[in-house]
Design a binder for these strands. Structure first.
Length: 367
DNA sequence: AAGACGGGGTG
DNA sequence: CACCCAGTCTT
């Protein structure tokens, strides 16, 4: 968003607050570091922002460190094996992000000489970079006066102005307010300060208004109840789907795995053979839908909640004496040593399914 | 404009 | 349990 209006009196007090209260995060150039001449690395800013899409700071931290150690620069990521990137992303969710991360790295390496575009428009043209990430990278990495608005900022703005219009309809108005506030000096720190404020003070539940530097000008606090903002459209309930998953293990300790389709749910990730996931329980077909005849043993049910439905997966296990012939000509399934499961691109639901059949398959019981 | 798309942290 | 998170892409 092009900003032509001057910043409001909110900006400087927020920057002062940020200098005193900012969080020290692995991808962040703190004000103290900036004073020593440290410049933000666009690759790190971009990588962190993509990981942070709909994902909390705490969850992202270890993934960010592992990615940076393994692929220190965008060109390293561009030349990496896709399977390795997907396996490293496993557990973070929204796997289209990982596929687009790889595409974006390749585009930067091949079409931009390994240098990230330094404008909002140039960034937004890249895979996996939308309104938020383009503005965030432009502001934080390139000091551009871009209006950065994420869920945290939406909450702060909606309370500051007591915006009664519900989300997402209110987004354009809220973005105008952010643009009005964003200063020409230190726009990146301003954006991070707004997000820090939303994450630590202006929280969804029980906000710490007494500690907020905007307590004197917050319209929601003055006129109403900050916790009632932002107003959101009513959400619909999640349907339940059912299916069965089959864990086949040979005497040599190998398990049958397959690769999911490139697009769609868990696209490009690894799974154990499963039935289709349907609305109705079909008990009779559960075992007969197994990949092959075997003495399948029931291992209970795993429940996993996705964004738009809940999945109840019946788990079946069988000890295989001799490897059955896999589907003729279909090369998307293979036998993998159970000892090598950690290196696979297994999403959390699949780790839970395998763990239900083979309790010691993974180091952590949670996965 | 609405739906698809994960998983974990938090109260 | 519900809610929410440094959103993006497709239809």
């Amino acid at each position: 968003m092009t900003i032509t209006t001057p910043d409001t009196p909110h900006a400087q007090p927020l920057l002062d607050w940020y200098d005193r209260h900012h969080r020290d995060l692995p991808w962040r150039v703190t004000p103290a570091m900036a004073a020593r001449g440290v410049k933000p690395d666009p690759y790190r800013v971009w990588l962190s922002e993509v990981m942070l899409q709909q994902t909390t700071v705490q969850v992202v931290k270890p993934y960010f460190e592992r990615f940076l150690t393994r692929w220190p620069e965008v060109t390293d990521l561009a030349s990496a094996e896709s399977d390795a990137v997907m396996a490293a992303w496993a557990g973070l969710g929204y796997y289209a992000r990982a596929r687009n991360l790889k595409k974006c790295a390749e585009a930067v390496a091949k079409e931009h000489g390994g240098i990230f575009p330094d404008t909002e428009a140039g960034l937004k043209a890249l895979p996996g970079i939308g309104d938020y990430t383009a503005a965030a990278v432009a502001a934080i990495a390139f000091n551009r006066r871009a209006a950065v608005m994420d869920g945290n900022v939406e909450r702060v703005i909606s309370r500051l102005h007591a915006i009664e219009t519900s989300l997402p309809a209110a987004k354009p108005v809220m973005k105008d307010k952010v643009a009005l506030m964003t200063p020409a000096d230190r726009p990146g720190d301003f954006a991070q300060a707004m997000m820090d404020l939303g994450a630590t003070i202006c929280t969804p539940k029980r906000p710490a208004c007494s500690l907020c530097l905007f307590r004197g000008s917050c319209q929601a606090l003055k006129l109403s109840d900050p916790e009632l903002f932002p107003v959101k459209a009513a959400k619909k309930e999640k349907p339940v789907r059912h299916g069965a998953a089959f864990i086949a293990v040979t005497g040599d300790g190998e398990i049958l795995l397959r690769r999911r389709a490139e697009s769609g749910l868990l696209g490009g990730m690894t799974e154990v053979p499963t039935t289709a996931w349907t609305a109705r329980i079909d008990g009779e077909t559960s075992v007969t839908a197994a990949p092959f005849e075997a003495a399948w043993l029931a291992c209970g049910t795993v429940i996993h909640v996705f964004t738009h439905f809940e999945l109840r997966l019946s788990i079946w296990r069988a000890a295989i004496a001799a490897k059955p012939t896999l589907n003729d000509g279909v090369n998307d399934e293979w036998w993998e040593p159970v000892t090598n499961l950690e290196a696979q691109a297994l999403p959390t639901i699949m780790k839970k399914a395998i763990a239900a059949a083979i309790p010691l398959a993974f180091k952590t019981s949670k996965a």
